[in-house]
């Protein structure tokens, strides 16, 4: 599904991605964990095309997409969410989602026909709103939502693009236990339908959801494997998991 080959990206002297090689298999939830500043968000940016690597390749469904821009990658079938919520604050939930559907369907260089008349767009938007648990809030402007609801919309925007691969950058960031539980359910329900690369600090969620886990430390993948292997890996324990598991 997704193959990263020796991706490298530096900010000044700091190598935020230091030769990352990684494979995500279709239909799986693949978690990416690592301490703060390990380069997880950077990697999401490199895959989504919002950052350009200095070297290395990104292969999606066997095709080299390294040279594609961010919006072209969305059309190729790959969408990201943001660690810091990034939605369209003045639009309603439904309008936010309809926009993502619009970007995917038909030409958007249409200057005359009102979008409001496009039933299909809003039907799909409402379906996604329901899927992410915002069915009842579909008519509210995004800026009026609670933090947890905005996080759900953030994931919904990715889903509404129709992407086959979703890159979720800490979808549970800043959430209370109740919202977190709902997000875990939402992601679990995606398994088999879309492939997910999940960046997350919440270890309970990661071990419940992930089919495979990669551990990123200082821009390098130090281990990849099934959850049990990762849990048992001494290198991982000392580098990162130790304190989290002990807690």
């Amino acid at each position: 599904m997704l193959e990263l080959k020796a991706l490298r990206k530096s900010f000044g002297a700091l190598a935020a991605a230091d030769g990352v090689t990684l494979e995500v298999r279709p239909g799986e939830v693949h978690a990416l964990i690592g301490p703060n500043g390990a380069g997880k968000t950077t990697l999401v940016g490199l895959v989504a095309g919002t950052l350009a690597p200095e070297s290395g390749e990104v292969l999606f469904e066997g095709r080299d997409i390294t040279a594609l821009s961010a919006h072209e990658r969305v059309h190729a079938g790959l969408a990201r969410s943001y660690q810091v919520t990034s939605v369209f604050p003045e639009f309603t939930v439904e309008e936010n989602l309809a926009l993502a559907v619009q970007a995917r369907t038909g030409s958007s260089f249409s200057f005359w026909r009102p979008v409001a008349a496009e039933q299909a767009l809003f039907a799909q938007a409402r379906a996604v709103a329901t899927q992410v648990g915002l069915g009842e809030r579909a008519g509210l402007p995004a800026r009026a939502l609670s933090h947890g609801e905005r996080r759900a919309l953030e994931v919904g925007l990715g889903l509404a693009t129709g992407a086959r691969l979703l890159l979720l950058d800490e979808p549970m960031a800043g959430m209370g236990p109740e919202d977190s539980r709902r997000m875990v359910e939402l992601i679990a329900a995606l398994r088999g339908r879309v492939t997910v690369l999940l960046v997350e600090h919440d270890m309970d969620a990661v071990f419940r959801l992930a089919d495979h886990i990669s551990v990123l430390v200082a821009g390098r993948v130090i281990a990849t494997g099934a959850p049990d292997e990762i849990r048992a890996n001494p290198q991982v324990r000392s580098a990162y998991l130790g304190e989290e598991l002990a807690a």
Partner: peptide, 11 residues
Amino acid sequence: QNEARAEAIGF
């Protein structure tokens, strides 16, 4: 409203 987001949903 949000340039980066618009690009990230495919515009």
